[in-house]
Structures are given as structure tokens and as C-alpha cells.
Amino acid sequence: MTRITKGLWRGALTAAALTLATSAMAQSDLKIMAPAAPGGGWDQTARSMQQAFTQSGLVKNVQVTNVPGAGGSIGIAQFVNGAKGDPNQLMVMGYVMVGALLTNNSPVTLAQVTPIARITAEYEAIVVPANSPIKDAKELAAAVKADPAKVTWAGGSAGGVDHIAAALFAKAAGADPTKINYIPFSGGGEALAAILGGKVTAGISGYGEFESQIKAGKLRLIGMTSPGKLPNVDGPSLKDQGIDLEIANWRAVVAPPGLSPEQTKTLTETVDKLAKTKEWQELLKAKGWDDAYMSGPAFAKYLSDEQAKTKEVLTSVGLVKS
């Protein structure tokens, strides 16, 4: 009866029902927390998982809860403290949370959660306005090296994946990453408008944000942060152009702390099954998300590697004081 450890209210009413039901199916109830407001990327991921879980019959009841705030810092704090030992809860998270927890000096860290699986990943694209004199990654790198102040970057929030990618680009170009002139905008639309209006030298964001502008010929794709050329992107990667930079904005699910190895295994298997369902694959396609499924020990290692790497970058840019 370990599952009743948490919750005076939760316990009495639901535990009896749970114990009865779990014997029949792998999972009958699941609570997915989206540590963001309804509508954002994490919320959409949580609600898509809910849809696929119930439609495929893998899990009968799935409930999505939203705990918005501070790049997920509030959600994870509530998850770690409130859901401890509960094998029927998941939380959606992503690369943004890794950075946010560091820059917000969060007392809760990702080392406390139980890693389950990475589900999607999107590579970053670097673009310039169509009338820019900069033609490819080499020229952009040369400009950054010559004077990092004169190359202005438009992207998302400070310390986020866009900012980190810009810093890594400067580093790979041989310039001082603390000297980049990175200008954070609130919301994708504002940054894109600044790039289209030629207010900044270059823009950096997920490829999806720029796709239609690139196809319409209003933006020029300089390179992707992928390991090689991507099949669905008409343009080279930065690595192919000799710039050693690889970074992905991924989303994953994690479970609360304090689970037994068996409970972790059951939960991982449930999510493994989800990733293979027809319903989930259809949803990925509709949303334009790239499948980047990885679970078990491989994901656990990936998660801790990403944390170490991000901390190093953020410290070298001066966004985190070591």
C-alpha cells in the first residue's frame, strides 16, 4: 500500500478504487502535469499524450493539470514535493526547464525526479533577412569573430535554448561568448518581426517558427543545429559548414521521486507503448513534432549530461554565477 503514502484526501477515496483496478490493467489512472499555462508547448504535449493514452486504451483515465510559472520552476517544486512516491503521475518538461532551474536558482533540481523518456526534439535554425549580405554560416562566424557587438541576435528569453545556441555559435566561431549582443524578445512573433524588419543581424529559434518565411523567400536559412542535413529541411547543418555546434530543444516526461525500480519500469513500459501507438504517431505528424523517443537508462544519462553541459554554457556566458 505504498501508493497511499501521500495525501490524506487523495488516499481514502481513491486508493481503494486504484488497487482494484490496477490488477486488471497496467495503468488505469494517470495524472500528467504540464508545468505551464494552458496553450503552450508543454501543455499541448501533455494534452496530446492524454488524447493518445485514452484513445488507444492504454490508460483509462488521464487528467492534465496546469501549474504555470517561471519556466516550470513552480511546477517541478510542486511535483517533487506533492507527488513523491506516486507511480500514477507524470510531468512534461523540456530543455527550457534545465536552463530555467539554473538561472532561477531553484532549490529543486532535476536530479530529484525519476527520468522516464524523451519524446520529441526540435533543432534550432539560424536565419538572416533575405537582403542580408551574409550568405552562409562561415560569413556569419567571421562577422561574429570580427566584432561580436555588431552582430545582433533576436531570439527568445534570456538563458533559454536560443540564447545558449547563440553563445555556442560565438564560441565555435572563436569569439568571446560573453560579448554576444543577444536581444531577448517576448513571444515568437516579436522576434520574427524584428528579423523581417531587418532590425537585427540574425535570428535564432526552432525551425518551425521560420519555416514559412524561409519557403516564401523572406528569410535566408544559415544553418541548422543538427548533427547533419535534415531530410525535411532545405538547407545544411552548421556542422556541415565546419561550425561545431549541436543543440536540440527537446521535450520529455519524468516521474516523481521515490519510486521503486518496478514502479519505474511499469511506468516506462506504459510510455514506451504509447510511443508506438498509431494514435500518437498521427498526433506527432499533425503537430509537426519530430519523434525523438529515448527511454530507460539512455535517457537518464542524456538528462544528466544535458544538465552538466547547460550549466557550463550558462556559466561561461555569465548568466549563472558559479
Partner: peptide
């Protein structure tokens, strides 16, 4: 800006953009 450029400039416009995109439509000049 939403229809001509695919630029979402308010929270609602961002959601409508997501609505377009779930059908594989990308608002913008095309």
C-alpha cells in the same frame, strides 16, 4: 500579421496559429 506573415502577436493569435498548424497549414504569404 497573423494571416500575411504567420506572426502571432497576441496569445489568442498564437493559439489560432497552432490551430492552422494542426492541419498542416502555415499562415503567411504562401
Amino acid at each position: 500579421p497573423l494571416l500575411t506573415l504567420g506572426l502571432p502577436t497576441s496569445a489568442t493569435a498564437a493559439m489560432m496559429l497552432a490551430g492552422f498548424q494542426q492541419y498542416g497549414l502555415n499562415p503567411g504569404p504562401l
